[in-house]
Design a protein around this nucleic acid. Structure first.
Lengths: 181, 181
DNA sequence: CACGAACTGGCAGTTTCTGCCATATTGCAT
DNA sequence: ATGCAATATGGCAGAAACTGCCAGTTCGTG
C-alpha cells in the first residue's frame, strides 16, 4: 500500500501534473484498479501513505534523539535528513503539483495537521508533561506549523535553505516549546 | 452559490449523515445537477462557501473593533456572536458529520487553514507590522489554531463553554499576539 | 498437505463529474 | 421599454470515478 502510494507519487512527478486517471495510476503501481480502490477510498488518498510515512519517520527520529539534547537541536537534526523525496527539486515540483488541485491539497493538509498529535506526544515526553494537556497540544501544533510554513516557503523560493528556514520558524515558538510547565 | 451551500449544509444536518447524493443536494438547493457542478468542482466542496463566509465574517468583525481594544478582548468579542450555525447543538452535529468522512474533513481543514492569511493581515494591522512578515504569518496561524482546537474541544465535550475554551487557547499564544515587534 | 483467512482481480452496475449546446436571465446602452 | 451582449442555467450524452459481488490466489498455521 505504501509501495503503491510511492509509485503513484513518482508517476505524478514524472508527468508534472495531477491529472492522472485511476487507470494510469493503477497500471504504474502494478495493481488492478479494483485493488487500487481497496487501498485508497478516494483517488486523492493515494498521496496519504506517502506523506504519513514521511511525517511519522521524522517524529520517530525525533524520539530517538538523546534526552540531553535541546528540543531545538533535535528538530534541526531530524529535519536535515527527512525529506518527502530525496531530490529537492522533485520535492518542490511535487508541492506545486499537489497545490494545483484542491482535492490533493486538502488531503495533504489533513495529513500534515494530523501529525500534530504525534508531535504533541513527542514534545510532551521531552518536557515531562501530559501529552493531552493544552500545552502539549499547542506545542505539537507549533512544530507542525513551523514545518508547514518552512516547506511552503522552501517550495516557493528556490534560494531558501530548508533547515535555516525551519529553525527561523521554530524560533518564534521557542517559549512554548521550552517552557517545562 | 453561498445560498446553495447553506441549503446543503442544512440538509446534511437534517439527515445527520454525510451520505447524500448530488441528486439530493441539488434538489434541496433548488438547482439542477449541472449547475451544482458549476458551483462546486467536487461534491465535498459544497461546504466550502458556508465555512468561508463564516470565517470571513469573524475576521471582518475583528477588523471593525476599536483600535484601543486589546487583541485578546477583540478575539473574545468576535468569537461570541460568530458561530457557523446558530444552534450550538446543530454546530456540534455538523462537526461530527463532516468529521465522519475524510473527504469532507479535508475540505473543512483546508478552508480553516486558508483563513490564516486573513488573520495575519488583521493582526499585522493591529500590531503595526508587515502582514507578510514571519511574525504576522505565525500570529495568524496561532489564532486559527486556537479557533480550530476550541471548536474541536467544544464539539467533543458538551460541557465546555466555547468562549472560555477559546480564550484559554489564545492565552498560550499571548506573547506572539502581543509583541509589537 | 490441508484448510481457513486475508489479499487480489474481473466485471457489472451506480454515482460522480465533464463537454457541448440550447435556453433563460441579467446588466446596460440606447 | 427595447435590443443586445454577457453571463447563468439546464439537459443530455458520455467519460471517469467508485461499489458490490463473486471467483481465484496467496499466505500462515497446524
Amino acid at each position: 500500500m505504501l509501495d503503491a502510494s510511492r509509485a503513484t507519487v513518482e508517476l505524478l512527478i514524472q508527468h508534472r501534473t495531477s491529472d492522472l486517471s485511476i487507470k494510469e495510476m493503477a497500471a504504474h503501481a502494478g495493481i488492478s484498479e479494483r485493488t487500487f480502490y481497496r487501498y485508497f477510498p478516494r483517488k486523492e488518498d493515494v498521496v496519504r501513505p506517502f506523506f504519513q510515512s514521511g511525517l511519522r519517520r521524522i517524529v520517530t527520529n525525533f524520539n530517538a534523539r538523546p534526552e540531553y539534547e535541546s528540543i531545538l537541536d533535535s528538530l534541526r537534526a531530524v529535519w536535515s535528513d527527512a525529506w518527502p523525496v530525496q531530490d529537492a527539486e522533485a520535492s518542490r515540483l511535487l508541492f506545486h503539483i499537489l497545490e494545483s488541485q484542491d482535492s490533493y491539497r486538502a488531503v495533504r493538509l489533513q495529513v500534515v495537521i494530523d501529525s500534530e498529535l504525534l508531535w504533541a506526544e513527542a514534545i510532551a515526553r521531552r518536557l515531562g508533561i501530559d501529552a493531552h494537556s493544552r500545552q502539549a497540544m499547542f506545542a505539537g501544533a507549533a512544530v507542525v506549523t513551523a514545518f508547514r510554513m518552512a516547506w511552503q516557503a522552501f517550495s516557493l523560493d528556490r534560494s531558501l535553505d530548508p533547515i535555516e528556514t525551519l529553525m527561523a520558524n521554530v524560533d518564534i515558538f521557542k517559549e512554548i516549546l521550552l517552557a517545562p510547565a
